[in-house]
Design a protein around this nucleic acid. Structure first.
Length: 275
DNA sequence: ACGGATGTTCGCGC
DNA sequence: CGCGCGAACATCCG
């Protein structure tokens, strides 16, 4: 599930696999889902490139080949992943882009559903990247800024959290996990959050992301196998809440599943301290 | 067998 | 501009 933590761990992998190594040739039989760079252009631009660095912005991965070459912007979508193939290793299904390195090694972008992207950077990509909101793991995320942004949105807080123009990198799973940690009901209107709730939420977001990062770093097998880490609430409808034991609930928000604990995450908190 | 759900983003309407 | 919905795609599950 490619949200910020998985994308960050993928970035670390790509850094180890690619930085300082030359791409001898590239094959992109099926790199584009809905527009993007043409196959010829991609292959021509990547052949001979030396990878200088791999960055992450929100859920986007950026390959840097130095000032003389166009970089790559990649997005995992829902099913995208990067794999490393040794000499003679058979190609996996749904291989979209393959980068040949020395010693017969290859790094491949695999994406069954083709909702991911692997494109050369251009003006349009720059605009998309520039439109991304703040990095939730950086100092940019403060209680004050979160409260200020939330106070201007009438959407449910969970939908708000997943808006990449506000915070970059949070998806359906991490939104559910963070709201559980902060004890906030996912359907609460964003602008109704009190200052201390926003502060708790800012801490919860960092905590949920770090927890997930740790889980992927410890067991990177989860990445390649597409397995799930164990979540606090996501995907656990009917199972007991890890905090209070009540059965967790599921409902639809914007067409996507939301999970929460009806006891820990009240729509009308009774602890506001004002009544 | 078939309908519904699955982590994503984008573009189109209001 | 804010917001909600459906599309893009392929697979899996009951």
């Amino acid at each position: 599930m490619p949200e910020l933590p998985e994308v960050e761990v993928t970035r670390e992998l790509l850094e180890r696999w690619l930085v300082g190594r030359r791409i001898l040739s590239a094959l992109a039989p099926d790199a584009r889902a809905r527009g993007g760079t043409s196959r010829r252009e991609l292959e021509a631009a990547l052949a001979g490139a030396m990878t200088r660095g791999v960055e992450r912005r929100g859920k986007f991965l950026l390959l840097d080949f130095g000032p003389k070459r166009r970089g790559v912007v990649a997005h995992l979508g829902m099913t995208g992943k990067f794999v490393r193939l040794g000499r003679g290793e058979p190609e996996p299904r749904f291989l979209r882009v393959s980068l040949a390195l020395s010693r017969g090694e290859r790094v491949g972008f695999v994406d069954a559903r083709r909702l991911g992207q692997f494109r050369l950077r251009d003006a349009r990509e720059e605009r998309r990247l520039a439109a991304l909101g703040l990095e939730p793991l950086s100092r940019e995320l403060t209680a004050g800024r979160l409260h200020q942004m939330a106070s201007r949105s009438r959407r449910p807080i969970k939908i708000f959290l997943m808006d990449q123009k506000r915070l970059a990198g949070i998806g359906n799973i991490q939104a559910a996990e963070a709201l559980f940690l902060a004890r906030i009901h996912p359907a609460r209107e964003a602008s109704s959050l009190r200052r201390e709730e926003a502060a708790a939420l800012a801490r919860a977001i960092r905590s949920a992301l770090r927890r997930e990062l740790r889980s992927y770093r410890e067991r990177p097998v989860l990445l390649s196998e597409g397995g799930d880490a164990d979540f606090l609430v996501y995907g656990r409808a009917g199972e007991p809440c890890r905090r209070c034991g009540s059965p967790l609930s599921r409902f639809l928000q914007g067409g996507r599943s939301s999970y929460y604990c009806p006891r820990c995450q009240r729509k009308c908190p009774t602890w506001t301290g004002r009544s």
